[in-house]
């Protein structure tokens, strides 16, 4: 299958062969190529440099460039090389965690990191408060500081089993096993239909025999 009317893949820094990425993830080669179609559209939306920067990520999430604490947090975890940009291999490996067939253990790990904003190995009360305040500012929910403190008291009395004021990895695993809906954000059913959502990958494929 030839490649035509598209920017050469060598112009995408961090581009990795779909066969190699498929072997490291739960995605098939075709699915990796379909993800490349999505990656191309996001990475070329503001600066056509073959990488996704924070602004492009926010634009893809919200259709606007508004800054958002939660989107920033996801972006930082996708940006594993800490360069302020996401390359194609980062993108595929990070989305892999969100695949419906990935073991819960990996999803629990990722979600723990999501909430452990300062990377101390603990989810601390001040981090959770900061996120609650950010949530209120993006929604129409209005809660008094007293109510926020009550919610934090209740949450930490449930989750922080040893009552040391912070949630460690084992406490988090225990807490989400009792509250499985908290992991809903960690699974994207879209990833099962990615080749249907981006069928144009077939025209841009660089792999001779597409394995589905």
């Amino acid at each position: 299958m030839g490649c035509f009317h598209s920017k050469p893949r060598r112009q995408y820094p961090g581009y990795e062969d779909p066969i190699s990425l498929a072997s490291q993830t739960t995605f098939s080669v075709s699915e990796v190529e379909a993800l490349f179609e999505l990656f191309k559209s996001i990475s070329g939306s503001v600066i056509d440099d073959g990488l996704i920067n924070k602004e492009e990520f926010q634009l893809a999430l919200f259709k606007s460039k508004k800054d958002n604490l939660f989107a920033n947090r996801i972006f930082d975890l996708f940006d594993v090389k800490k360069r302020g940009v996401i390359d194609f291999a980062d993108f595929v490996r990070a989305l892999n965690v969100f695949h419906p067939s990935i073991p819960m253990e990996e999803k629990i790990d990722f979600s723990f990191k999501l909430y452990d904003m300062d990377n101390t190995g603990f989810i601390e009360r001040n981090e959770v408060k900061q996120m609650l305040v950010a949530l209120l500012s993006e929604s129409e929910m209005r809660l008094s500081d007293e109510t926020i403190e009550t919610i934090l008291d209740k949450t930490f009395s449930d989750a922080d089993v040893n009552q040391d004021g912070k949630i460690d990895r084992a406490e988090w695993e225990n807490f989400v096993s009792r509250n499985p809906s908290l992991l809903k954000i960690m699974t994207l059913p879209y990833l099962k239909d990615i080749t249907t959502t981006f069928p144009s990958f077939v025209f841009h494929s660089e792999v001779d025999d597409i394995v589905t």
Binding site: L61, L132, A134, E138, S139, L182
Partner: peptide
């Protein structure tokens, strides 16, 4: 509702955590 007293259940409602939006054309 018990969920309204769970800070993480509230936080996970943020649109910033909804990566499904990346797939909406």
């Amino acid at each position: 509702k018990p969920e309204s007293m769970n800070a993480f259940a509230l936080i996970s409602r943020s649109q910033g955590f909804n990566l499904g939006n990346l797939f909406e054309k």
